[in-house]
Nucleic acid binder design. Structure first.
Lengths: 196, 196
DNA sequence: CACAAAATAGACAGATCTGTATATTTCTGT
DNA sequence: ACAGAAATATACAGATCTGTCTATTTTGTG
């Protein structure tokens, strides 16, 4: 096998552009509401280029979600690292990251939650990409809770996920970035209650 | 003004059937994924009947949401009433209602949250119907929190909404009804922390 | 029964959508 | 410069969608 494979390439400029453009449009307007042609027009890319890189629209969506998943988790990791070494502080740092996200001017809710709402069949790729991301974040929270020596870290991690995703839905709905702080305060209560 | 108005009727059998059928299909499969023709076929109703009762698909969706909103809030009210007179117990009763919903075999997540994800423009009727419902529930929680004499009842009500909606998203995603109990436990912690 | 309101069937316009086919041009690495 | 890979423009098939129009039939109420 030569280093240059048969398939276009694991990554190329056009491919990345398509993923970024697709993410932005789908996140802002929903998945089924945005047609492929809209993505192509905004990206300035030909239709065949898209279908040379991706099997279908759902495949493009899932690929964009997978890419963003990695980027977002890396960004969260940075915030956690910057929070010092207290595991409880590191847990709460995720909610500070949330505040930054809610406050960003292009905040339009969680594209993963939206994917679960629009792709409702178990095998749908966007749905699976969404569950994978949410599970990864939950696992990270659980690891932090375990480090912190908190009781029932798996349950706590999920409860924190409830707060994060619930706050995200409401921040989108009411366009209110202060909800991150309220979620953080709630998280603090749960963490304190989980001390051994 | 005669009791029989010009418009078909405030309520009719066909109209109710359309609302029920539309709700079931949209809730299960998403809004844009289901066409009007699918609703009509399942309901066994002619297309013109639909457009005599509703201005558009979005109007049908918003009407179905408004109808269900009232029914759901009434159902929650029953559970609250059955929980006795302790305000804190009444607050937690909402999470017992949640458990029953998650466990029902036709649970497919929250149609209001999905509407916010699919109709992303501020004026969209389905989005407004969703925010109205969420606000009504939040107001009810706030009233209960106030009755209970808890601190910052408005904030607590919103935090409980975060738990409810986050748990709903995750219960849909992972098809796990036990999340209601975890959300309830978290709610209990928040309520205890809010005691004066 | 008779009359008006409600519902029906079915076709249709017009738009939009995903994905494919083809022929041509641009880019890239050696 | 040249060969092969990548991207392009364009057209198109086939399906689907919302909403309208018309003519007919059913239904409910006096």
């Amino acid at each position: 096998m030569s280093p240059a494979e048969n398939i276009p390439a694991p990554t190329s400029a056009k491919r990345e552009l398509l993923l970024e453009t697709a993410w932005a449009l789908f996140c802002q307007n929903g998945y089924r509401a945005v047609g492929i042609d809209t993505v192509l027009a905004k990206a300035g890319v030909a239709k065949m280029t898209l279908y040379n890189h991706f099997d279908s629209k759902e495949d493009l969506i899932a690929a964009a979600m997978a890419k963003k998943s990695g980027e977002i988790l890396a960004g969260i990791e940075d915030v956690i690292a910057a929070a010092g070494k207290s595991p409880e502080r590191r847990l709460l740092a995720v909610f500070d990251w949330l505040a930054g996200w809610f406050g960003s001017k292009d905040f339009t809710g969680c594209a993963f939650i939206k994917a679960v709402g629009e792709y409702t069949v178990a095998g749908d790729k966007p749905r699976e990409a969404a569950t994978a991301y949410k599970q990864a974040l939950q696992n990270r929270l659980q690891a932090l809770a375990t480090e912190a020596g908190l009781k029932a870290p798996a349950v706590l991690a999920r409860q924190l996920m409830f707060l994060i995703d619930g706050a995200t839905v409401h921040a989108d709905m009411k366009a209110d970035a202060t909800f991150a702080a309220e979620a953080r305060a709630a998280a603090k209560s749960l963490i304190e209650a989980a001390r051994p």
